[in-house]
Design a protein around this nucleic acid. Structure first.
Lengths: 251, 251
DNA sequence: CGGGATCCCAAGCGATACTG
DNA sequence: CAGTATCGCTTGGGATCCCG
């Protein structure tokens, strides 16, 4: 029924309103996938394997009412983010970064999806570090899915590739990257975590971490990857909120 | 029973794991309040008026298991964020900023709480703009609650004051701010939105927006407030994800 | 066949009452 | 004050069915 008005938090507050609008179960994962690009109903379902179809249907309706997604008129079952929906990117990125720092081993039956990895790369992307490197293509194979990340200057372009790809848009800019600037990795899910969120000290000092094997390219390219993509362990925002540490501050 | 293991999303992904750990209903609001400082059970309940007590109890247990909060040993019913919990600040701030941009009128029965406003000020705080101004104290009265925000250099210190205050810690640094650098405002809830997230063009050009009245101080101080605290309308992060706009990118 | 809508059941949520 | 216990109700989950 998509009736949620009665489930508010009773607060006139930014966080509360945000959660009322996009905090429902599965909603932020749908938004995450749509951040990578427009998707069809079946694409979303495939990227969210455990979502019941009625819930996906409900969420899509609610998110349309909230104004964060809209239908793509010319494509049956196509959905895309609105301008407002795209402004949720900082929220998704913040969650992604925090999630990686607390992400242990994959649980039984957990899978890796192409859109999720694509967004992880965006969340891990350091434009400043990237800008100092020549144009580079990184090809990743993780748990059965494959994607290509093209870095040119401070711009990143990620797309799924191969048979499992949900869609195959034209590469926007396809500058020929010389073979010496192509890195191709076969990565276990846990290896991806170590690669993106692992201890920075280990950058290419002792070769690839466990669960990461280089198919094409050298260790210098791996070091470039780790300079370009990394999720710093602690939220690096400037905090000035009072420290809770002291018990005396309660009472 | 706080059993949530079976409710996972089936994905090995940062966002998914983050939502599994702190995405349950009410959880992020609890974390928001604890971000302002340590709180007791009754403080949290008062700051989250519509939360059922059993849910608050469940969430506190779950968040402890997740390692984001802990009990304050010396205070009965006291809770505080752990180091890991404090790293959720970027998530809360991102939600706060997005929420304000979509926050309309207050709905029937919605209230404003001190901790929520305190965190809004943090989310709106611009350290660079603040650093150019002399030490200033801003006192806000909003919907029955009051708080004081002290800005010294690029540091912000917010605390609830007055009879409705949940706790009254010692001000950490109490430099005497000259009366000419104290601004005291009486603000309607909607006025707060216009003040924090309103059109920047209106900064002190035509006086305070509707719902904002100056009790102490001049319009120059109000302009200083708006330079120091503002939530920019659009997420200003550097996006390079492919634009979904074109229908051709689906199919 | 893709894109949903309809069931039914279980789990989570909300309100109230109650206890250490 | 800081929770626990209980109970009805609402949502989510999973399977199935329908429709263009």
């Amino acid at each position: 029924m998509a009736t949620r008005a009665a489930r508010g938090f009773g607060q006139y507050s930014g966080v509360a309103r945000a959660i009322e609008r996009v905090g429902e179960r599965w909603a932020l994962l749908i938004i995450r996938d749509l951040l990578v690009g427009a998707r069809r109903y079946s694409d979303l379902k495939a990227g969210l394997p455990r979502i019941p179809t009625n819930i996906l249907s409900d969420r899509l309706k609610e998110l349309q009412e909230a104004g964060v997604i809209r239908r793509v008129p010319t494509v049956r079952g196509g959905y895309e983010l609105t301008e407002l929906g795209r402004t949720l990117e900082p929220v998704i990125v913040a969650l992604e970064r925090w999630g990686w720092s607390t992400l242990g081993q994959p649980a039984e039956g957990e899978i890796v999806t192409a859109d999720a990895v694509a967004l992880s790369l965006h969340a891990a992307f350091h434009a400043e570090s990237a800008a100092t490197a020549p144009p580079t293509e990184y090809v990743l194979h993780v748990g059965g899915i494959s994607l290509s990340a093209m870095v040119v200057g401070d711009a990143l372009d990620v797309m799924p590739i191969g048979p499992g790809a949900l869609l195959q848009p034209m590469r926007r800019t396809a500058p020929e990257v010389p073979p010496s600037d192509v890195l191709e990795l076969e990565v276990e899910p846990v290896g991806l975590r170590d690669l993106l969120a692992g201890a920075p000290g280990a950058v290419a000092v002792k070769g690839p971490p466990a669960g990461v094997s280089i198919l094409v390219g050298g260790s210098a390219l791996l070091a470039r990857f780790r300079r370009t993509f990394r999720i710093d362990p602690v939220g690096p925002s400037t905090r000035t909120v009072q420290e809770p540490g002291a018990a005396a501050s309660v009472a």
